[in-house]
Simulated assay, not measured.
Amino acid sequence: MRYLLGKFLPTRGLLILLVSTGLLVGCTENNQAAMVQQVVAIESGEECHLCGMIITNFPGPKGQLFSKGIVGNLKFCSTRDMFAFIVDPENRHNIQQAFVHDMAVTPWDHPDETTYVDARKAWYVIGHSKQGAMGATLASFARQQDAQAFADAKGGEVLGFEQISLQALVNMTGVH
Rank of each mutant, 00 (worst) to 15 (best):
V39A: 01
V39D: 02
V40E: 03
V40C: 03
V40D: 06
V40M: 00
A41E: 11
A41S: 11
A41D: 13
I42S: 08
I42C: 08
E43A: 07
E43R: 13
S44V: 07
G45M: 01
G45K: 12
E46A: 11
E46Y: 13
E47Q: 12
E47W: 06
C48L: 01
C48R: 09
C48A: 04
C48S: 07
H49N: 02
H49K: 05
L50K: 12
L50E: 06
C51R: 08
C51W: 11
M53A: 03
M53H: 08
I54S: 12
I54L: 14
I54E: 15
I54P: 07
I55N: 12
I55Q: 12
I55H: 15
T56H: 10
T56I: 01
T56E: 09
T56P: 04
N57V: 03
N57L: 14
N57E: 15
N57I: 04
N57M: 13
F58H: 14
F58D: 06
F58S: 11
P59I: 04
P59K: 12
P59G: 06
G60L: 11
G60I: 04
P61A: 09
P61I: 01
P61N: 08
P61S: 04
P61T: 05
K62H: 15
K62M: 06
K62R: 15
G63Y: 13
G63V: 00
Q64G: 04
L65F: 07
F66T: 01
F66K: 06
S67D: 02
K68T: 04
K68P: 00
K68Y: 03
K68I: 01
G69N: 03
I70H: 15
I70K: 13
G72A: 01
L74Y: 03
L74W: 02
F76T: 02
F76Y: 12
F76K: 07
C77K: 09
C77F: 12
C77W: 10
C77T: 10
S78A: 11
S78T: 13
S78R: 10
T79P: 12
T79R: 13
T79G: 15
T79M: 13
R80D: 03
R80P: 08
R80L: 08
R80N: 03
D81G: 06
D81L: 00
M82A: 09
M82F: 03
M82D: 05
F83R: 08
F83E: 09
F83N: 04
F83G: 01
A84H: 13
A84L: 06
A84Q: 09
A84R: 15
F85C: 00
I86H: 09
I86A: 04
I86D: 02
I86E: 05
I86R: 07
V87I: 01
D88R: 08
D88Q: 11
D88F: 10
P89H: 14
P89F: 13
P89I: 00
P89G: 09
E90L: 05
E90P: 02
N91T: 04
N91I: 00
N91Q: 07
R92W: 12
R92P: 05
R92D: 10
R92E: 14
H93F: 09
N94F: 03
I95E: 05
I95T: 04
I95C: 00
I95P: 05
Q96I: 08
Q96G: 09
Q96Y: 07
Q97W: 05
Q97M: 01
Q97G: 02
A98D: 03
F99V: 05
F99N: 00
F99W: 15
F99C: 06
F99Q: 02
D102G: 10
D102E: 09
D102V: 09
